[in-house]
Design a protein around this nucleic acid. Structure first.
Lengths: 149, 149
DNA sequence: TAGGAGATTAGAATAGTTCTAAACTTAGAT
DNA sequence: ATCTAAGTTTAGAACTATTCTAATCTCCTA
């Protein structure tokens, strides 16, 4: 069972990433990066705020939004919106990719672009520049024998 | 140049459709159906409201929302949400289909399911039930010689 | 150790939609 | 024609997610 944390970064590394992206590495920003770049999985602003409140005595919701927007502008985070929710979802996977939505849990999974083939035969008026694809269905963990539940 | 109206219905036919779907055909509902089922193309609630105000002396925004939700529940209309806008968009095309978004104009086009082939090679944990696909790009009208602009 | 740019903050504002509770309309039984 | 009950419409309040505003705070540079 591998850990679900994608990539753990030290505070140093986060500071460097921020500075490299032209963003002043303040306490609040470093903390939020720790969460959104290392721990979280498709969090909403609300989830980031909740987490930040636990890990930083005092932080305002406005700062959470400001920071998330700053990170998006700096190219460290992607902003996503899906039909099943009105909340913006943040994704630190900066590769172009698609998503799978588990209908039961509402949980999102990244799907590599290479795992899906899309071919569209459209009238030539339609000049395709990109696809937004949300696959929805059922995520069934522990399918293999000896699943650990 | 064929008219863009998809299917024109008489007031009678609309009343029948409503009754058939178990919805009382009130004046407001018939009027709104006239617009969303016959005239409009992917309207928002706001657009429906604007149109309704012009064609019916007095109608409240609440009624517009109530009616649209009633039509969705009755299976006469689909509710769509896309990442480029926070507004719900209504679609009277009840076939399963995809959409094309013209980046410049923000205009949406229905894309028949058969015009697009999607094949996903995912781990078997992912049991696919459906795809939400938004193709985005450039809609270039008048590509053929003799375009009428 | 003062100046100033930039960051943070609380709370107001905004947008889109839903809720509430009262008034109105309608359908059906008489 | 009349009554009643159920269903519809309405204005405005409420709600949710997010952005804005303007004051305060921080901290780099000189």
């Amino acid at each position: 069972m591998k850990p679900s944390k994608k990539h753990c970064l030290t505070q140093q590394e986060i500071e460097e990433q921020l500075r490299g992206a032209g963003v002043q590495p303040t306490l609040q920003r470093i903390l939020i990066c720790q969460f959104v770049l290392c721990e979280a999985d498709h969090p909403t602003a609300e989830e980031v705020h909740l987490w930040a409140e636990k890990n930083l005595a005092k932080i305002s919701l406005a700062t959470v939004y400001n920071t998330l927007n700053t990170l998006v502008d700096a190219g460290l985070l992607k902003e996503l919106k899906f039909p099943h929710s009105d909340k913006v979802i943040y994704d630190d996977n900066m590769e172009e990719h698609y998503h799978f939505l588990d209908r039961k849990s509402g949980k999102l999974f990244d799907i590599a672009k290479g795992d899906v083939k899309i071919s569209a035969q459209l009238a030539k008026q339609f000049q395709i520049q990109g696809f937004d694809l949300l696959i929805n269905g059922n995520y069934q963990r522990d399918l293999k024998k000896g699943g650990s539940l």
